[in-house]
Write a protein that binds this DNA or RNA. Sequence first.
DNA 1: ATCCGTCTGTGTGTTACCGCACATATGATA
DNA 2: TATCATATGTGCGGTAACACACAGACGGAT
Lengths: 236, 236
Amino acid sequence: MQTTEAHDPTGNKLLASLPREDYERILPHLSPVAFALGEVVYESGARMDHIYFPTTAIVSLLYMMENGSSAEMGIAGKEGLVGVALFMGGGTMPNRAVVQSAGGAVRMRAKVMQEEFARGGEFQRRLLRYTQALLTQMSQTAVCNRLHAIEQQLCRWLLLSHDRLDTDELVMTQELIANMLGVRREGVTAAAGRLQEQGLVSYVRGRILILDRPGLEAAVCECYGVVKEEYDRLLG
Amino acid sequence: MQTTEAHDPTGNKLLASLPREDYERILPHLSPVAFALGEVVYESGARMDHIYFPTTAIVSLLYMMENGSSAEMGIAGKEGLVGVALFMGGGTMPNRAVVQSAGGAVRMRAKVMQEEFARGGEFQRRLLRYTQALLTQMSQTAVCNRLHAIEQQLCRWLLLSHDRLDTDELVMTQELIANMLGVRREGVTAAAGRLQEQGLVSYVRGRILILDRPGLEAAVCECYGVVKEEYDRLLG
DNA sequence: ATCCGTCTGTGTGTTACCGCACATATGATA
DNA sequence: TATCATATGTGCGGTAACACACAGACGGAT
């Protein structure tokens, strides 16, 4: 795997954007972690010991229904972090964080992070802006779930994932995508088939290749653009 | 209208929960506002001059689609505030805030609020915890929109509104509820009719009366409970 | 090379919600 | 009391997504 990149804290854009002074103060408190596909970063309602800054990994925030079905409310990759509850004050969140794309992250002990946050400097500022971006992503997911068709949501999901990867290939079965989107596997098969017919993607057995990104951007609903622009504005 | 209550800052639970010292420092900077039904508190993408703490009013956060349809992503009442973007750092949000139930609020100039927030004390702590609660409400709305039927969502919406009112009567047409939920008006008519048959609510021309709150709580999906518990835990 | 678990494709019938059209009821106002 | 804008009820056809069943296809392991 991408050993050097995955363990370099600057692989995480949020950390990389810190002023040198803040970055260097934080650096000694960061330690690398490797995440496997499907690994649970934290469980719904569970207290976390660390905050995670993905470098090459992508993490999905999922709500697990009592009856076993699930739906994704947001995703985090190298642009952000996993564990906002640790500095927002609640400590826990009623959702599960699952590794959606294997890769690396760096982590920081909760206590150290909280002390740094309490300094009120640039670190705090970036964390709060990131949280606002996440807020937008989640709220737009709510809108998209209500008003848009599976095919458009699949485009949105593919683009959000692609933005957080350095490759055009997503390792992901249709079954897993269905769990993320909160729809049936057959629904994903049908939507993915239509995208493939249009030449936007190609896929074989758990691997999806993005062939025509501009084409996907033309096929996606406005939700993707709203979220993307807000991330760029707040974190860019 | 409820003149005294609506203008008393302690009508807002978030302000009322502040330690006396913080509350008294903030009090001189609060001024009362009256909101009419349908009034736009802030427009999508617009910079705000004030943060609002509702006392008797309820405000909906709506996303307006390019094609004119809309969907609610969250609501705020006396338990919270409107304008998280002002302390989260983004300044604006890509959604509209509309008065869903007429009533009062107190407001505070953005600059003053930001200075108080930067002190890093209890005020900051409460604001961040509230924002985490809002995050949960929005993400649970996403899940609910994906997985649950209109009737359950209507129950959720009625209960969330009822929690923020001192009366059992909601002044709200089915047409407006449909805009909030992002569904057809006829869909609301049908769902509301079923709730009325069960004796849970009664309504006539723009007024809905909550008759059997425990019954509604039995009919609602788990989403309401998740959000409620998180609000109680974080702000209680 | 074969086996077998997993992933993907497809068909059938059902349901929830949509869009449209229009009938009826309410209550404020003249 | 009559009028009228607005709110609500209802019917009908269309469609997207559902649940279930099963067939084929791939690719790693023996």
